[in-house]
Design a protein around this nucleic acid. Structure first.
Lengths: 215, 215
DNA sequence: GTCGATTTGTCAGGTGGATGTCAGGTTTCG
DNA sequence: CGAAACCTGACATCCACCTGACAAATCGAC
């Protein structure tokens, strides 16, 4: 099959570039029509490559790793408070999902000069909180659920409910944080009904493909 | 992604010069219309570069080289979660001081493309919290106290205590957040003793100069 | 070679973001 | 005042992504 070869070459071509490239340019390069190129790119997505598209003038395709936002410039004070607030949130487990947040805060903190980082440490030490952290679950499970929530993707979970463990395919509608628990309001994709799960009772989770995906 | 490239080049062009340069000259140099150049400059400001404009004859654009840390590059997901988390913190009043935090989050949000901003709004809507917000005080007072805390500067406050209102000069040692109250652990600089104040009972505040005689 | 399935091409739309044009403002300075 | 510069909103246009429908071409098995 020449199609599969082309798909592989296409993924390499995308990986090689730093900037976006239009579907038309790709079509020309691989000697196929524009329509076929769109189909190919769709196939790559179906194979869960992080193909990112930008519309309009100057747009085009790129792989997600190279996709960067315009830079943000903080003042020292903004950076300090951002990190202080964020770390507080993480330490107190007020946010159910914190991995991505943590990497973002690292980036902010590393923008501070050494002096600023020392001041920041002092600032954090001067803020404390009296309260109860919420219950959470295994890091690996939490990471998957974070992805599913942020990207609105369907998810297969093992849930330790009242009648023993059971597997379910769900999409997360919303997240509710109560005093000591985090609740996931989901749509059960198999039964087509709404259902609520407690985060700390999810024992396993993995992302699944969108039901409508083709070929 | 030609727009983002141009924004970077533009920031470099501004950084390179000492004197002001008109938007028209920049537009010509980058081969875009005047209107687009204004939009670009607006984007740089939104990304919090200190772009300074001088109006009228002989005016133009220049970059304020004074403050600002090195720029931070987030992924779309990091930016989304950072803003979601931060705004949650603000909405729930989990942080006693939120003005600076809010401006920082605005900067992060404005780095997202329109599509990302819409996704972010959806993400925020899908996260809620059940709880009691903490008590706070007047925005003007809070703003001053935030400054004093972050910068460790002495402060003159009017406090509505048990025996009526009284003025005190203090330095904030640490901030403790309890369930519904925020407590300020301070040193009373006049009496030289430690004292605790409740944030919501501070009725007025202003920064004072560092007392050089104290050692 | 023929049949059927897969793949591809062509056409005709739709959507969204960036840019340009136009028509106004406002501020500053000579 | 009036020119020069910064600003802003409204609108049209372009460009690129995206999708559906259907016919043509290609490929594989028999």
């Amino acid at each position: 099959m020449r199609r599969t070869e082309r798909l592989f070459a296409l993924s390499e071509a995308l990986r090689a570039r730093r900037t976006g490239i239009t579907a038309e340019a790709l079509a020309e390069r691989f000697n196929v029509s524009l329509r076929t190129m769109y189909r190919d790119l769709e196939s790559l997505r179906a194979a869960s490559l992080p193909v990112h598209a930008e519309r309009g003038r100057g747009g085009g395709y790129a792989l997600d790793r190279s996709y960067a936002l315009p830079p943000v410039n903080f003042t020292a004070r903004e950076a300090s408070l951002l990190v202080t607030a964020g770390r507080l949130l993480i330490d107190q487990r007020w946010m159910p999902f914190t991995d991505t947040l943590a990497t973002a805060l690292d980036k902010v903190e590393s923008a501070l000069p050494p002096r600023g980082q020392r001041d920041l440490a002092a600032l954090r030490r001067s803020l404390s909180f009296v309260g109860v952290p919420a219950r959470s679950c295994e890091p690996e499970v939490r990471e998957v659920i974070e992805s599913a929530w942020v990207e609105q993707r369907p998810l297969r979970i093992r849930y330790d409910g009242a009648r023993g463990e059971a597997d379910r395919t769900v999409r997360i509608r919303s997240v509710v944080m109560e005093r000591t628990e985090t609740l996931l309001n989901c749509d059960d994709l198999d039964k087509g009904e709404a259902r609520q799960f407690k985060l700390h009772k999810v024992t396993a989770a993995r992302l699944v493909e969108e039901a409508s995906s083709v070929s």
